[in-house]
Every structure is written in structure tokens, then in C-alpha cells.
């Protein structure tokens, strides 16, 4: 494919976008829903055309999507993050109650300059001679992230999981006595009664599989093997769940084309 043709297609799609602005301006709110529907439908079809093979329309749409997404997140960041969290607090002095450092809201307010300085230092990566200064802001980000991660991951990934697992024997005893409250959604009580011990043993065996400091032999080896079985069932379940999620997205797009756009299906 020669460049002028590529450019022509790309510019054509952009012209379509620009034309849509003028339609909006000229026709007000009446025309826009159906015109927007047509644009959305064509964009959907262009992306789906990739299933046949890579083509200029798809490539153009792909590049439009990247450009639009980049600008969308830039706008989102400016008005939803930087303006309320940074500009309003530092310039307009709109601090929230309790926002103070060393007992002073003013210190808190002026301390907001520090991330701006660190952010500017990050931009030094563009200039090779002073690019090393960007390490300071990366260091601050890494340090803050690491310091936050240590207690938070220990709390969320380890403590909470162990607490939830230790609650299981109690739930199991309750389930044995036929209390339906601990079996949300289960019509078959036996499934629950089999599942709870499996969950307890499976978690321990799964952890044993990940413990490589001891050779996987003997009793430990059997436990680790059972652990890998549980892990494989977990991976299979996650895979099946992901397939269904993607298929439901595809069904959503097909329904959009057949129902919203072509009106072939009853609402």
C-alpha cells in the first residue's frame, strides 16, 4: 500500500470526524443520535474487518483510537486529577478539613510544590545531559510506592487471606448443621460440604507447591502435586471465565449492530 493512499484514507476518516462536529453544530440535538450511531457502527465494522485480514481501514481506525485515547486521558487527567487535587489546593487554597502538616494547613499547601518540582525533574529525560536528574523523581515514586506496598500487601494479600481461610472451619461446622446462611446461592448442601475442606486443603497444598526450598518428594511431594492440580483447575476456571467475558463483549457489539443500528431485532 502506497503512502498517499494511506494518508488519503486516514485524512478521510478524520474529515468524517470533523464533519460530525459540523453536523452537531448545524443540526442540534435531533440529528446527532442517529449520526453518532452511524459513526459508531462504521467504527465497529472497521475494527471487525481485521478478522478478515489487516487492511488500511483498520490501520487508520487503530491510529485514530490511539490518538483519541491519549487525548481523552490527558483531558481527564487535567480536569479530574490535576485541577481538583493540585491547582485548586495550591493556587485557590481550597484545602479539605484535616489537611495539615506539622499542625499547619499552609505548610501542607506549600508542600504541594514538591511533586511539581519532582514532575519537572522527570521531564529532564528529554535532555540527555541532565537526564540523570529524572532519577530523583523516579526514586521518590519508587520509595513512596514501596513504603506503601509493604504494609498494604501484607495486610491485603496475606493477613486478610489467612483470616478468611481460618474462618472456614467454623463455616464448615455450621454447614454440617444445615445452616443455610453460610451457603449463599447453593441449592445443594453437599457441594458446600465437599467444597470447604477442599478449599482449606487446596490453599495449603497450593502454597506448598510454591515452596521450593524443600525438594518435592515424599509426603511433601504428594501435597505439592495436589497443589498443582488445584492450581490447574483455578487456571482453567479463570480461562473459561475470560473466554465468556470476551464472548459477551462480542455479543454486545453484534447486538449493537443488529438492534441499535439496523433495528432488525425487537427492543
Amino acid at each position: 500500500m502506497k503512502s498517499p493512499l494511506n494518508m488519503g484514507i486516514g485524512v478521510g476518516v478524520v474529515i468524517l470526524m470533523v464533519a460530525s462536529f459540523f453536523y452537531k453544530v448545524s443540526f442540534g440535538g435531533e440529528f446527532i443520535p442517529s449520526f453518532g450511531l452511524w459513526v459508531a457502527a462504521w467504527m465497529t465494522l472497521i475494527i471487525l474487518s481485521f478478522l478478515y485480514k489487516d487492511n488500511p481501514f483498520y490501520k487508520a481506525a487503530e491510529h485514530i483510537m490511539v490518538g483519541l485515547a491519549m487525548a481523552y486521558f490527558a483531558i481527564y487527567y487535567i480536569f479530574q486529577v490535576l485541577e481538583p487535587r493540585f491547582y485548586n489546593r495550591l493556587v485557590l487554597n481550597e484545602l479539605q478539613p484535616g489537611e495539615q502538616l506539622f499542625g499547619s494547613p499552609e505548610v501542607f499547601r506549600w508542600a504541594l510544590i514538591i511533586p511539581a518540582i519532582l514532575g519537572c525533574l522527570m521531564l529532564t529525560r528529554i535532555f540527555p545531559k541532565v537526564a540523570w536528574m529524572s532519577r530523583w523523581s523516579i526514586a521518590a515514586t519508587i520509595g513512596l510506592g514501596s513504603g506503601l506496598a509493604i504494609p498494604v500487601t501484607i495486610q491485603a494479600n496475606i493477613t486478610t487471606q489467612i483470616r478468611a481461610a481460618s474462618q472456614l472451619p467454623l463455616d464448615y461446622m455450621t454447614a454440617l448443621h444445615g445452616n443455610a446462611e453460610v451457603m449463599p446461592g447453593f441449592t445443594n448442601v453437599h457441594l458446600w460440604q465437599i467444597g470447604v475442606p477442599l478449599l482449606m486443603i487446596g490453599t495449603i497444598c497450593g502454597l506448598m507447591y510454591f515452596f521450593f526450598s524443600v525438594p518435592h518428594r515424599g509426603v511433601f511431594g504428594y501435597a505439592a502435586t495436589f497443589g498443582i492440580w488445584i492450581l490447574m483447575i483455578g487456571f482453567g476456571a479463570s480461562f473459561g471465565y475470560t473466554v465468556m467475558a470476551r464472548l459477551s463483549l462480542f455479543i454486545g457489539r453484534v447486538l449493537f449492530l443488529l438492534k441499535d443500528w439496523l433495528d432488525w431485532l425487537p427492543t
Binding site: I158, A165, L198, G202, L207, F210, G227, I230, I233
Partner: peptide, 12 residues
């Protein structure tokens, strides 16, 4: 059950 057991082991 099996999926939660696997996820829990991985999360820890």
C-alpha cells in the same frame, strides 16, 4: 472452592 483455593495460594 478450587478456584478460590488456587487464587488464595497465588495471592499469598
Amino acid at each position: 472452592f478450587p478456584n478460590t483455593a488456587a487464587k488464595r495460594a497465588i495471592m499469598i
